[in-house]
Design a protein around this nucleic acid. Sequence first.
RNA 1: GCCGAGGUGGUGGAAUGGUAGACACACGGGACUCAAAAUCCCGCGAUAGCAAUAUCAUGAGGGUUCAAGUCCCUCCCUCGGCACCA
Length: 811
Amino acid sequence: MGVQKAYQPRSLEPKWQKEWLKKGIYQQYSRKKKCYVLDMFPYPSGSGLHVGHPRGYIASDIYSRFKQLEGYGVLHPMGWDAFGLPAEQYAIKNKVHPAVAVKKNIATFKRQLAKIGFTYDWEREINTTDPEYYRWTQWIFLQMWKKGLAYQSFSPINWCPSCQTGLANEDLEQGRCERCDSVVEKKPMRQWVLKITAYADKMLRDLKTLEWPEGVKEAQRNWIGRSEGTEVVFYVADTEEEIRVFTTRVDTIYGCTYVVVAPEHPLINQQLTINSQGIKNKAEVKGYLEKTKKKTDLERTALSKEKTGVILEGIEAIHPFTAERLPVYMADYVLESYGTGAVMGVPAHDERDFEFAKKYDLSIQSVIAPPRGQQPVQDQPFIDDGVLIDSKEFTGLTSQEAREKMTAWLSKEKLGKKKVNYKLRDWVFSRQRYWGEPIPLIHCEGCGVVPVPERDLPVKLPNVKSYQPTGTGESPLADIASWVNVKCPECGGKAKRETNTMPQWAGSSWYYLRFIDPHNTKALVDGKKEKKMMPVDVYVGGDHATRHLIYARFWHKFLYDQGAVSTPEPFQRLEFLGLILASDGRKMSKRWGNVIDPNDVVEQFGADAFRLYEMFMGPFTQSIAWNTDGMIGTRRFLEKVWKLERQVTVNKKQTTESKNMQSLLHQTIKKVTEDIESFKFNTAISSLMILVNALEKESHISLITYQTSLILLSPFAPHIAEELWERMGNKQSIFLSQWPKWDKKKIVAETVTIAVQINGKVRTVLTVPAGSDEATVQALALADVKITAHLDGKKIRKVIYVQDKILNVVV
RNA sequence: GCCGAGGUGGUGGAAUGGUAGACACACGGGACUCAAAAUCCCGCGAUAGCAAUAUCAUGAGGGUUCAAGUCCCUCCCUCGGCACCA
């Protein structure tokens, strides 16, 4: 053991970091049981890591070390999600190739990470911008294309005028670009789109099988937005034209007093171009259309906005049940992109319709009566289910019965059918920017769209003079004639490459597979290695509740259907972490000047103290403000651990501590084991502190107790644990030892304290041998002065006794 | 508006229906020191009291229970997600 020096993390930590790497301590892949622990890999930005980033990495690292100690072969890799706008913007500004900037940033990130002491297997490091990586991103895209899941669309998409690129629905936040906050416009453009909606049902269904936080599942459910309803046909009077309407409340249809279509609805264009009949107030309608076009989606959907619309004079809709002629309106509160782009107006039972009807003085007919006892509120629509009234033969049915019967009737009459609708839109997959994976397709004059043959993958991103977006809807790649002009791989004729690139989210949609064998992604296809490692057992991260998780699930499910992967879901368990905010309560950001560099903290307190503090701050799922003052606490704790060595007796295997001490040790084993498994690191650490505080008071600590404590500490503070472990004479790394098991019998303490209550109020506590029976405890309690004083001769009505916990006397 | 997570000391936070405030930070007092830092010991929800102790106290108000931070009902507030989705 030698003479003990002061605890000096600054020399001790780098020493072990090197040693672990050299010996490959964390590459125990030959073990039988596997555990795949994955972090959401970072985007290597120019500003480097701040103390918020490592929170998730520390958690996954603790979990990985714990699982390795439990005997698992743990895969815990790290890589870089390096395509995307920031690197490109940096490149434009500084006139360097984005790949150069990315390389530099990755080096910074790695240097920062290395100091915290992670178990990452750097032999499996990946980078989404590596052509050998994106060869497979392109390959997967081609498989989708071949199955008809990638298609060209020419309809209007979301266009960010500042980023000068098309965006997916998921990239918007309240009608603004999530990246730059610009108001997004609608722009008709040629786009590649992935048919993610084809997987809507499967993604929804399989959420049930996942161990994910309820909130994230719910966000996914909302995003997919499945709703069951009825599609109803309203014929346009005196024509063969029809307006199809989607509703979830067909039971209210007798209250339908008008029909509304979206401005983009095909009927409008068609009826405007008819000369003889059709819309009579064409000028008015055209005027409204013009106004709508000028509005952004943001303005159209603004919450407080009053509903506007215009009647289509000369057009009437036939009510499918009553054959009444109803007025038809065009209004921009109806969205073309959802349902059929047309709705039936039931003002008595829908808030929006009610508002609209009030404004345009439309008739309001109540057809749903509230269930017994309830009174409808005056001057407000009744939007709940109830019992049908004034609905001919459907009168008297409940809403639910009516929906079924009415839908059945409509089906029979060929006037409608059951229909499921989703909010989820297909994924706009092309970007008109430089720094992304080229879409591996070729446009041939003769053959049309032709895939790049597999042997020609990857389609490498060529060098360009300017990374600046062109703004024309073409990417900067379009300017490189030598790259764009190719021979058609099928007919050898004149052809051009697709110049759009893939979005930021492409590379991260399958990266967890690449880690399984980063040098040979054929594993994807041949399957053996994939089968051994998948699924990811625990996925740790935050901030991407919908986009990344929904995209990755979609790609994975596609690959599953192709037989390329063996599991229907990629991430079995998800641990979603809270952000670390700056001490001012804001997000840590260069912009606010409130960033704290983890390496500064490590420099001052040591990596182990830093790791402990990040986990001790509070519950893992909760956002929390950083406070460097707290660091001193975990550092002091480690100093105590360090000094404990002096109390270790040479007496080898035997335990010398009291029974109560043994009980505490075993309680701690149980607590730490269970808490790590459930990601409750803060309470695991506090129980370790309790143990250390107690050991400190012992005159002697047995070797076995001490070493057990070191193992319990090692996932959290690996460096100090390894150092002290070695000082105990161990030749092999502590991380190749075994996680202790608790002994139920030893957990039971010799003595326990029992609270004695009178009428539920604690009056005294008794220390009694564990397992004492009620009679014994009651006798002791009634003999206690404090109790007799309170009883004051009153009659005891009842006594409740909970073993080893409480005795309640009711008087 | 809908969905999700919350509301506990000066602060971060603990509490299978069973002694509310574990653990830690800050703070106050003491020891050591010429002095400081570090370290160690003691105290630390509020009110009253020299004290023993008593009363009150987990966003607000009701309820269930021998016993409620925890379960039920009504309401308020904070954070996160979604939102003219028919």
